[in-house]
Write a protein that binds this DNA or RNA. Structure first.
Lengths: 147, 147
DNA sequence: TATAAAAATGAAAATGAAAATCATTATGTT
DNA sequence: AACATAATGATTTTCATTTTCATTTTTATA
């Protein structure tokens, strides 16, 4: 099923409307490759239709999250970012603290252990956030040179 | 070594000064039990000396973080929180999405796998954030009742 | 000990992301 | 068409955090 279709059904379910703006914002969002902030997306949307306001972009990103089409990524720099979720496998993020490079990572065993860890404390795990911070290969080499 | 001593040495190292305000703020911070926001701490500090300003509390918390005495905890609700770090074992957090209950958790195997995962991608791991979200035992039972 | 230099402080203002407000417009339903 | 409901965009507001800046405190130096 297409993302537009998923969104449509989500909206219908909630008695919300598929509007021209929402369609446009989803469309532009789907064309993005990396993690976009609401502001990033607003700037992209403006190019296509400058009459669309940034409040609507914020609102629509929230909806896309709820609909399972986008997921929030919080690298801790004070700006929320969104990435595609639909049809994407869950993954976490590995971030280089020097150059900011971001790698999507996944380890099924970690996922499993998280589940177990939660269960051990009487919790049913619904969600998690994991961010690994380090220094990437490139920056490691550069550091050696300049030292 | 006492926390005051650690702070003192950290400041000396950086050519910064141990002032009455910093001493007081550290002292009050050490008396806290859970995760405090800068505002929480500011309110506590005010009780002891109402002349200390909140900018100084913000500034000092930053320093305590750098000194390894406090660590930042970001539950994603838009407020930074700080917890004791000195002499505490590293741990992650398990949060109940219903009642907000927070449990400190630790799994050495997960830690190890995180290291490996980073290495696999050519990174040297320096740090990580892991937050597990779920529903705690209590809230689970309540949900069943009301259904 | 005086004095100069450097750092720290508190009050206030500035910042910036996100949310709320509200008058207007669009959409869907009888 | 007429009505009710929802959505929109511009703007304002909120709120945590940061910055500014004049003043005060601390430290190093003469």
């Amino acid at each position: 099923m297409s993302e537009q279709k998923v969104f449509q059904e989500f909206l219908a379910e909630k008695n919300l409307r598929m509007t021209y703006q929402r369609k446009t914002i989803l469309d532009v969002f789907l064309k993005t490759k990396t993690h976009v902030s609401p502001e990033d997306l607003y700037n992209l949307v403006k190019k296509r239709d400058s009459s669309i306001g940034q409040a609507t972009v914020y609102r629509t990103l929230k909806l896309l999250s709820e609909a399972g089409l986008a997921s929030e990524v919080d690298f801790g720099d004070g700006v929320m970012r969104y990435e595609h979720k639909y049809g994407q496998r869950h993954h976490d993020h590995l971030v280089c603290e020097v150059c900011g490079k971001k790698v999507e990572v996944f380890d099924p065993l970690i996922e499993e252990l998280q589940e177990k860890l939660a269960k051990k404390h009487g919790f049913i795990l619904t969600n998690h956030k994991m961010y690994l911070y380090g220094i990437c290969n490139k920056c490691k080499r550069l550091q050696k040179k300049t030292r």
